[in-house]
Simulated assay, not measured.
Amino acid sequence: MSDLIPEGWKLLKFGDIANIHKGLTYATSNYSTREYGYPFITLKCIKKNGGFSKVGLKYYDGQYKSQHIVIEGDVVFANTDLTRDGDVVGSPILVPEIKNEKPSLISMDLSKVLPKEGMDKGFIYYWLNSSLVKRYMINFSAGSTVLHLNTDSVPSIPALVPPISEQQKIAAILTSVDEVVEKTQAQIDKLKDLKSGMMQELLTKGVGIKQGDKYEPHTEFKDSPVGRIPKSWEVRKLADLIGSLQGGVSVNGENHLKKHSEIGVLKVSAVFKGRFIPSEYKTITKEDEPRARVNPIKGTILFSRANTPELVGESGYIEESVSDLFLPDKLWMLTANVVVK
């Protein structure tokens, strides 16, 4: 962190600007229904790299303390990460409006942030979203299969703090940007729905038979194991189309940018919606570098064999080979035994 800071700003620690309270310990037997339970925000409510998801909202029927209660606009962050890649741990959310007569609660996998005097909630939320704080959160986490944040270390994270008026202005600017992003994302989601419908149509009925410069729709269809398809089409097994299948190995990696002499291992998040994202990697530890063996190769397809239920099976096409990145054990690389024109 630079020694030069704007006039009026202070270099403090997280513990100086807010109090942190962990959520309540519970058992699944405490789960209830919307009618009888309290709205219960769990780890699955936090998306990768932050943001609220309704998927993880449960209902709880049991004892709790006032420190476990959250209201709209409260800042909450994750203490745990099931992804093992560090995409969730430390990631914050702003608690949304949850319509219910009963108070909302947070689980033990989350912590609530209570700003101290002179601190703005919105500013703290965006500060928690910064890459610097994210690195601290990951470095303070450990676990062989699930990452657990050492919450006792979190208050020591350094924080550059401007005066309250400037905090509020910064938060307002970033909020306005988020609103634009949200509107843009809504448009993207609509286009994705349109694309899904088009794919279903094109992959089952095709574009038709070429007649000169135009395509005339197929008029003859037949029944098949996958439904009705054009008469001229055939059904083949995926195994008939795959030329080769290679998998990587599990290696230890660290969440920081690799240096020129270092190599990286891809995360499962390196494949998403048909795209290959080479920036999604971890730097392989020196002792594990000799074990890395499979590079992403141009013209092949990466396929995720393990991920969360909604993301398992994601794939991405590799447009350029990458010599300093390697496949993990959870990604497979496929080549086709047919020429795609």
Results as ranks from 00 to 15, higher is better:
Lys330Leu: 15
Ser130Leu: 05
His148Ser: 11
Pro103Arg: 00
Gln211Asn: 13
His260Asp: 15
Pro230Tyr: 12
Gly313Arg: 08
Leu105Pro: 03
Gly73His: 02
Lys259His: 11
Lys183Gly: 02
Asp109Thr: 04
Val88Phe: 04
Ala78Trp: 08
Ile301Pro: 03
Leu203Gly: 03
Val181Glu: 12
Leu191Val: 07
Ile69Tyr: 06
Ser232Gln: 12
His218Cys: 09
Ala171Arg: 07
Tyr125Leu: 10
Ser315Asn: 07
Asp240Ala: 00
Lys222Ala: 04
Ser144Cys: 09
Met198Gln: 09
Leu12Ile: 01
Leu105Thr: 08
Asp81Gln: 03
Gln67Val: 14
Gly118Glu: 13
Ser131Ala: 10
Leu160Val: 15
Ser232Met: 04
Val339Thr: 15
Gly274Leu: 14
Leu241Met: 13
Ser315Trp: 07
Ser261Phe: 11
Val338Asn: 04
Leu334Arg: 00
Val235Lys: 05
Ser107His: 03
Trp332Pro: 00
Val76Tyr: 09
Lys330Cys: 06
Tyr64Glu: 06
Ala292Ile: 11
Ser269His: 07
Ser250Ala: 12
Gln187Thr: 05
Val226Ser: 02
Asn295His: 15
Leu128Cys: 14
Gly313Pro: 10
His21Arg: 06
Lys298Leu: 04
Tyr36Met: 04
Lys273Thr: 06
Arg236Met: 07
Gln200Ile: 12
Ile138Trp: 14
Leu174Pro: 07
Lys54Glu: 09
Ser176Asp: 11
Phe140Val: 02
Thr184Glu: 06
Val180Cys: 13
Tyr38Met: 01
Asp223Lys: 15
His218Phe: 15
Leu302Met: 04
Leu4Gln: 13
Ser130His: 11
Ile41Asp: 06
Gln211Asp: 14
Lys273Gln: 15
Ala172Ile: 01
Thr308Met: 08
Asn129His: 11
Gly51Arg: 01
Thr219Leu: 08
Leu132Trp: 09
Glu234Gly: 05
Gly62Thr: 08
Thr308Pro: 01
Pro290Thr: 03
Glu72Pro: 03
Arg84Pro: 01
Gln211Lys: 10
Val181Ala: 10
Ser131Met: 03
Ser279Pro: 01
Thr285Asp: 07
Gln168Trp: 03
His256Cys: 10
Gln168Asn: 10
Ser32Trp: 12
Val154Glu: 04
Met199Pro: 00
Ile297Arg: 08
Trp127Glu: 07
Met198Cys: 10
Ile301Asn: 04
Arg275Ala: 09
Tyr60Cys: 06
Ile157Cys: 08
Ser323Lys: 14
Gly50Leu: 13
Thr283Ile: 06
Tyr31Asp: 06
Thr83Trp: 06
Ala142Lys: 14
